[in-house]
Design a protein around this nucleic acid. Sequence first.
DNA 1: CGGTAATCGGGTAATTTGGGCC
DNA 2: CCTGTCCAAATTACCCGATTAC
Lengths: 70, 70
Amino acid sequence: MVTRPTETESLLTPAEVAAMFRVDPKTVTRWAKAGKLSAIRTLGGHRRYRESEVTELLGGTIPAQRGARD
Amino acid sequence: MVTRPTETESLLTPAEVAAMFRVDPKTVTRWAKAGKLSAIRTLGGHRRYRESEVTELLGGTIPAQRGARD
DNA sequence: CGGTAATCGGGTAATTTGGGCC
DNA sequence: CCTGTCCAAATTACCCGATTAC
């Protein structure tokens, strides 16, 4: 193991996910409570989200259809 | 924590885009439905628009065609 | 152990959503 | 065809104090 200090593995903090979705960390917590997001709870009760999960959800973008021809 | 560089894409809320275009948020929503604007949906159903997309469209204005016959 | 920043929890106001009409 | 306003419901944002994370 090549020493992995305080670096994050694949877990994102509520503030991270909130910034990616442009929403409030509280809203992200709501999604976790609603079961829309997989959340891992720390021993203290704080939530941690999987980067893969968030990235997957962010991939739901709809490409704007410009002119049929360009 | 000063936020981590996790693919931070600047997103705008409907009110933001509406203010930039001087139209109602409803109109912006129609553009998104019409496929004229790229929209990211939050887990709650709300839309988030790319700042780059909006800025790009705002930059495509007509440079005031003056003069030919006025 | 002590300190700062973030997150937790609940509650209320503001915003956004969707469709129909002019 | 496009936009603005109406309605009702859902979702999100910010307030507080307390705890947890590092």
